[in-house]
Design a protein around this nucleic acid. Sequence first.
DNA 1: AGACGTCACTTGTCCTTACGAGTGATGACT
DNA 2: AGTCATCACTCGTAAGGACAAGTGACGTCT
Lengths: 259, 259
Amino acid sequence: MTEIQRPGALYQQVAAAIREAILSGEFAPDSLLPSEAQLMARYQVSRPTVRNAVAALRAEGLIDVRHGKGSFVRSDGQPVLTIERRISRTSDGQFVMPSGDVWTEAEQPSTYRTRTSKITGHFLALDEEEALFACDRLLTDPETGTRAMHRTLIPFEVAEGIPSLAQEPGKAPTEVYRTLTQDGHKLWWSETVRARMPLPDERTTLQLPDATPILHLSRVTHGADDRPLILEELRVGADRAEVAYRITADKQTTRRRPA
Amino acid sequence: MTEIQRPGALYQQVAAAIREAILSGEFAPDSLLPSEAQLMARYQVSRPTVRNAVAALRAEGLIDVRHGKGSFVRSDGQPVLTIERRISRTSDGQFVMPSGDVWTEAEQPSTYRTRTSKITGHFLALDEEEALFACDRLLTDPETGTRAMHRTLIPFEVAEGIPSLAQEPGKAPTEVYRTLTQDGHKLWWSETVRARMPLPDERTTLQLPDATPILHLSRVTHGADDRPLILEELRVGADRAEVAYRITADKQTTRRRPA
DNA sequence: AGACGTCACTTGTCCTTACGAGTGATGACT
DNA sequence: AGTCATCACTCGTAAGGACAAGTGACGTCT
């Protein structure tokens, strides 16, 4: 029996007490927390109150609860996969994404047609409802088992201007880069990183634990005339992956800002 | 009264039904959802079941619930602030972070001493428990009101080698860069982006809504000998901010990988 | 007209009770 | 020895009741 006092609702006090016990090390990472019944006795509260407190800690990502076993302190595991976002040039002058080579395709990619949403239209500098080729891939990192959802979006306009693209919209991104550079384009990329909570289908597809956000990367490939050519989106669980960039000041490019 | 069937627990079926209604547009963004009592009648379930379903949608970030008013469909607002992560060179050859200039300091920075954790040690290539100067800042973007937590970490070793640093560990990052370059260092940066759920104090400090992850940026400034000099951390709510990078293939730097 | 109290509505908190379902160990039976 | 039923433990789901607390509108009183 531990006394609790202070602020707010009962279940928040209980949650705060448990949280403190975890952060202070009283409950070590990966160790088993007291059961709901024990917590009821310890804090002299009812089961709903205990469950409410536990739910709060779950939402914070502090603990994992397993049916029939108990609650475990989540080990603050660091990401096991660093997605290196740089472009390197191979000996024959072609571009490859280093991170792209890491992944293995878990299934056949599915290609389809769609239209720009507000977001994708923004990245591709297109109005809404513009026609697009799309290709979805489920990727796996063989070493760590990390899964990721990849999507390639190519505007009809761009695909028509580059016949080899239109023939096979589902080809791998590295192939797309090769095609684009062979056609004489000099490329540069802009990349945006966002984070948000997963939708239910993303949760299951990426096999995410509770309270795990996803990193959502949007990479736009630009041609020499700065026109957006293709948009790639990568979604990956933030518990397993991080994104790394390298910034140098040697060579400076100027950037036009939209007025 | 709407029938529900299919998979899993009752509250999940209710949650799925509401989710579908939201995504299909039946409940428009920012509109008021039926009250708990109405949902009880609509799906013929008890109040705990309704509340459980609502809690699930809340954790997904799909709705916002306001005490005494009701549940509202969260508008999928795009981030209002893009943190541009590039280094530009001013006319007098000094380096500034463009993003750094955007922010306003909401309070006095607090400087203190600490030691490396597993994470900070990793970034600074130091063992654990090494001594550091630290400086915390609470930043605000005046245009959007977005708040961010900034931390500067400087190893004792580095500060001792650069006297002007040790004199004022709380000086602004741009000043630190100026100092370092004046001392003849040629700098480059590596930056890592992670996402995770906020701790309670981060939730309140950054004024985050429910189910909102934070973006955690770790920027390491390296000297010409590739030695890590300082570590900056920026934490910002992922509902308001995104991070943008630009990648060019003009000039390629090689990177040593740790064996 | 203005101020303010009341009331009906909302969600928040907390309790009790009951049963379903996953897990692992124990022990009896083959 | 091996197999499998049982049991005690865990968390999951569902219902019911009661009261607290925030919100806004309505109506009364000044």
